[in-house]
Each structure stands twice: as C-alpha cells, then as structure tokens.
C-alpha cells in the first residue's frame, strides 16, 4: 500500500496547477523511491516529467509499484479543498480503485477526507537520454515567466540564443520584433536575481511560446528555473524542488524550412 504524507499541501497543489493545462489524464507511478509522473501533451510537442522523491514525504511508505491513474481536473478540484498549509496524506491500496487524500489543519482540529476515483490509463513511457547540454542557464523563474509572457504578445515563437556570458530571447512578429538579453549576474545581496550561463558551445533554437508560457505556471514552485539547451534536441525547463525532487518540461524545437 501507499501512504505518503506531505508537510504542506501547497507543493502538490502547485504541481497539479502547473501541469493540468498540458496533460489531462496521467499515471502517478508510486514505488519505494517516490512518486513519478511522465506524460506528453496531446500534440506530442511537450513532455512533463515530475519526480517527488520519497524524502519529500515524511513518512513515505510504498511496498509495491502502484500506478494511480488520475484525471488532473478532478485532482485539482479535490486539492483546492486543501489549505496551502494543511498536512496532506495520500493513501492507496495495492490494487486501488480510488486514491484517498486526507487534509489536516495544523492549527485547527479539522480533518478532511476525500477519495478520487482512479482510471486505467495506458500511457507510453519515453526514454529520456542523459544529455550533456551545450548551454545551461539558471535564472529567476519570475524573470523567465515575464520574458515568455511579454514576447508571446508579439509572436508565436521565440529564438533562444546562448553565447558566451549572455543569453538572448528574440522574437519576430507581425507588429514588430523583440529581443531581451541577459548576462551572467551574481549578487550577494540579492542572490534570487542571479543569472548563471554555462556554455560549452553556442546554441540557437526556436520554440513555441505557447508551451513556454504554459510551463511558467510552475514558477510558484521555485524561485529559479534552469534552461538546458543543445542544438537540435528538446529544451529542458527544470524547476527544482526540495529533497532532489523536480518538475521538468521538455519542449521539441521548431524545425527550420
């Protein structure tokens, strides 16, 4: 059986809020290492990969591999019944028909119990190769969100160009063009504003802004975001969570004529 207790319901709330417009039904794969999810969007352009390691939970118990097939819209409805600071416990049998959620208020003596009906989801798992990326950019997640939002007003796509010490986001639209350049920036006083660009070779790739704007819904999960790029492979957008857990998005690049 599965029993996984989260100190703060907000983590799961934010994860589901961040991915539910991209994927609708997905399996939460539970085993002794934690709870994982991998799902493509309908058009097979983007892939979501979430890992909540067992250390994220306290306690965490899962004796067997259990796949919880959940409709994310339903999951969101139930998670909205939890306060952000509630303690959240997920429970399921070894061959479950439902997943149970218990929300406990730490301040009040209130316990809320919900069940969500599970579904059989035949999901393909893709093998994501280990990649040495040519460029890795770490920047404030809010900054990345703002860039994507701003440029999406002008164009459908953005070119991300990484070169020594600088990354440029460029778009060309019907009404005009836009470009935002960021340089390496590190401040002891405001480390949350740091930008770090690691580069082994210059990279330039074009991506759909619609998907990037969607990924940025995860900005509330982490103050910083990591963008990993190599020529002719999908972009990795990673939000790191506590205990080595993560929410990752992969986006296939646009292909030139």
């Amino acid at each position: 059986m599965l029993e996984a207790r989260l100190e703060q319901a907000s983590i799961l709330k934010k994860v589901v809020d961040a991915i539910k417009d991209l994927v609708q039904d997905c399996n939460f794969d539970c085993n002794d290492s934690g709870i994982a999810l991998q799902a493509m969007d309908n058009s097979h352009v983007a892939l979501v990969s979430m890992m909540l390691k067992s250390d994220t939970f306290s306690p965490f118990r899962c004796d067997r591999n259990i796949a919880l097939g959940i409709n994310l819209n339903s999951f969101q409805k139930v998670l909205r019944c939890a306060q952000n600071e509630d303690i959240l416990t997920l429970k399921a049998d070894d061959s479950p028909d439902v997943v149970s959620l218990v929300f406990e208020s730490s301040e009040q003596d209130r316990i809320s119990e919900y069940d969500i009906k599970l579904m059989d989801i035949d999901q393909e798992h893709l093998g994501i190769p280990d990649t040495e990326y040519a460029a890795t950019i770490t920047m404030p997640s809010g900054e990345f969100q703002r860039i994507c939002r701003d440029l999406s007003a002008l164009s459908e796509s953005v070119a991300i160009e990484a070169e020594k010490n600088a990354v440029k986001f460029v778009c060309n639209g019907d009404i005009g063009n836009g470009a935002i350049s960021l340089r390496n920036h590190s401040s002891v006083e405001k480390p949350e504003q740091n930008v770090n660009i690691e580069l082994s070779e210059p990279v330039a790739l074009t991506f759909s802004l619609k998907y990037l704007v969607n990924f940025c819904k995860a900005s509330g999960l982490s103050g910083s975001v990591k963008l990993c790029l190599s020529n002719e492979v999908p972009l990795l957008v990673e939000y790191e969570l506590a205990s080595n857990s993560y929410l990752r998005f992969y986006l296939a690049p646009k292909i030139g004529d």
Binding site: M40, S43, H44, V45, A46, L47, E124, H125, L126, G127, I128, P129, S208, V233, P234, Y250, L251, A252, P253, K254, I255, G256, D257
Partner: peptide, 14 residues
C-alpha cells in the same frame, strides 16, 4: 504541424 518538432522523434518509446 509543419515546422514544429515532435517530442517522440527525440525520445524513443521505452
């Protein structure tokens, strides 16, 4: 989708 790459062309099925 002309112009848009497919993620399955990069990550094979397991």
């Amino acid at each position: 989708r002309p112009g848009q790459g497919n993620i399955m062309n990069f990550f094979g099925k397991k």
